[in-house]
Write a protein that binds this DNA or RNA. Structure first.
Lengths: 144, 144
DNA sequence: CGGTATCCTTGGAGATACTG
DNA sequence: CAGTATCTCCAAGGATACCG
């Protein structure tokens, strides 16, 4: 069954749509939000009504245009963001979270709360949160 | 500053401990829990008091011994799990979440709640949650 | 049982250049 | 401005074999 897409011609690559073999909803959701950069992008979009491509690229520090494009396409295909193209020269393309996308705030809030608490505790102990080694396949953001 | 470790000789590879360049606590926490398999492992450990290596491997469907070992080491270094070795033949090694590790429940619960809700809604629509393309670098679980 | 050591493959992701 | 199109590299992670 086709996903709801933003208006416009269908993409050349239909983007395959596999379901996690475990069939577990939690797995599925984790799959959805836990790729490289994805949570970061969602996080940024949650704090704005709408952002243009270049603004998004500026906010998500260090991401490349190629990566950003790719992640946005996936999020769009998952029904979490909407892409709105304003024709003209120069073109404007706005991205914003869908209603469903905004529900991710339910996850991001507890995440932020815990992060801040740990951070405060660790400051007192002279430790730093995220004292964990990097996993290069999950660059920048995703370390364990 | 050294991390608290389970008893035993220090590991040969001290496991470098970089801090996310963004300095953002949310980034740091996401870094901590969002690698391949990591959330899955935490999820499983949250539902048990303690699990042995082989039990863990059985619960985390599809993970290889190498990966499991690696992830457990990282989680241990991050202070989220404890490794307890029972000497003897055959040896027993138990893993359990630390107090701090158990606080991750605050994140996993909302995640589960949202996942179940979306799953239920999507069942009604004939859609499937996680209708999103795979990202092979984040295998099995982590798809976007 | 609970790992480590090695080999090997694949595709993730950066850099660069180009386009409507 | 908002992307695509290539090229390339390298390391994540699976498979396999072995060890205390």
């Amino acid at each position: 069954m086709p996903l709801n897409r933003s208006p416009g011609q269908p993409r050349s690559k239909p983007l395959a749509v596999p379901v996690p073999e475990s069939g577990c909803p939690v797995d599925a959701l984790i799959s959805l939000i836990m790729g490289p950069w994805t949570a970061y992008i969602i996080w940024v979009l949650l704090q704005h009504d709408s952002l243009r491509f270049s603004e998004l690229k500026r906010e998500v520090h260090g991401i490349s245009a190629r990566m950003l494009t790719d992640r946005l396409r996936r999020l769009e295909a998952a029904g979490l963001i909407i892409r709105e193209q304003q024709l003209g020269i120069p073109p404007h393309v706005n991205y914003e979270l869908t209603v469903r996308g905004r529900e991710l705030e339910e996850i991001m809030r507890p995440l932020e709360a815990l992060a801040r608490r740990w951070f405060a505790e660790d400051q007192g102990n002279g430790r730093a949160i995220a004292e964990a080694p990097p996993a290069a396949a999950v660059p920048r953001l995703h370390r364990i």
